[in-house]
């Protein structure tokens, strides 16, 4: 028999608890509902996770650098509305370019405020969540946006498949590979870990904290624009609130993957695992016949559980009066 002391058990829970819970969850659901692990269902889960997933890739950069980004949901709404509105006016290519430029501009603004002015990222991005929402509504006049020509090639990003694989999944996979390499293999990636792990020590090593954080937000906004493109292309029409609440789901996925909210830890591969976990959990609950809205509650429970297990594992106790 494997024997663990209480401390070891807690450390194990902290490190692998989420994964263990996920495996148990999958087993139970697979046994209860055969459809759950059918190829169709698995593909559909991954596909519907792609939008969350693409944004989670960017947020991983921000979180590893020791910051938060709560503005991504409303930023995605913004980019979706912009591209759908301009599609009919200036054509898809220019519309996509305009959408990426404007979204990157927002990312740059946040990056400037958090990176160079050293403002608290929680406050800045929480404020941006509201400000960008206002910007979107002002732009659209509160109306929903639609593309008139439903046969536009613009639908490629959200609706087509290449060699049997849905394009959103391809985009997610390619972007994950690219950003995974940047974070784990390049000098820039190394600096992100240093800045998030100990910003002062990074400064003492000649690394520009401001620049590093700035580029993390730029990457995050690029991912948001990409997610917005998939979303807009899939529906060819959108409401002003399409991204509402996604920031928490994305954050849940990133934390579930093991990135530390304190910064300095987390990888793209783990985030991808976190995204898939979240997707399968939500899908499983739906298959069980629970209402769609239950997932909001479940997402919150998952965040709390993941954060708790993370610190419990670090301090080796489930509760401690210190820290």
């Amino acid at each position: 028999m494997l024997r663990l002391s209480k401390d070891e058990a807690i450390r194990f829970l902290g490190k692998q608890g989420i994964l263990a819970a996920f495996v148990i969850f999958m087993l139970v659901f697979a046994l209860a509902e055969a459809k759950f692990i059918s190829a169709d269902n698995v593909l559909s889960v991954i596909r519907s996770s792609a939008i969350i997933g693409v944004m989670a890739l960017g947020v991983t950069f921000v979180v590893v650098s020791g910051n938060l980004d709560l503005s991504i949901g409303s930023m995605m709404s913004f980019s979706t509305i912009v591209v759908l509105d301009l599609h009919d006016k200036i054509g898809p290519v220019l519309a996509i370019l305009a959408m990426f430029s404007l979204t990157l501009l927002l990312g740059a603004l946040i990056g400037f405020l958090v990176g160079y002015l050293r403002l608290n990222s929680l406050i800045v991005t929480l404020g941006m969540l509201s400000a960008i929402h206002g910007l979107t509504l002002t732009y659209s006049g509160g109306k929903n946006m639609d593309i008139s020509d439903k046969s536009s090639w613009f639908s490629f990003f959200g609706q087509d498949s290449v060699m049997g694989i849905p394009v959103p999944i391809l985009i997610f996979a390619l972007l994950a590979a690219l950003l995974g390499i940047i974070l784990s293999k390049t000098p820039f990636g190394r600096k992100i870990y240093a800045v998030g792990g100990n910003g002062t020590a990074a400064t003492f090593s000649g690394i520009s904290r401001s620049k590093t954080v700035f580029f993390c937000y730029l990457i995050s906004s690029f991912c948001v624009a990409t997610a917005g493109l998939i979303q807009a292309s899939r529906s060819l029409g959108s409401q002003n609130t399409v991204g509402q609440g996604l920031e928490l789901e994305v954050l849940a996925a990133v934390i579930l993957g093991g990135a530390s909210l304190l910064g300095g830890a987390g990888t793209i591969a783990k985030t991808v695992v976190g995204v898939l976990m979240l997707g399968f959990i939500q899908n499983g609950l739906l298959l069980m016949g629970l209402q769609f809205y239950v997932q909001f509650v479940v997402t919150w429970v998952i965040i709390i559980l993941a954060v708790w297990l993370d610190i419990a594992g670090k301090r080796g106790k489930l509760w401690s009066p210190l820290a």
């Binding site: 000098p187 190394r190 600096k191 870990y193 240093a194 792990g197 100990n198 002062t200 020590a201 990074a202 003492f204 090593s205 000649g206 690394i207 300095g264 830890a265």
Partner: peptide, 20 residues
């Protein structure tokens, strides 16, 4: 506080100023 990134490994700490 200033010299090391404690969560990083020995090698990465050592080469941090010249990682570029």
């Amino acid at each position: 506080g200033q010299g090391l990134v404690l969560g990083m490994n020995c090698r990465d700490n050592m080469t941090l100023p010249q990682v570029d």
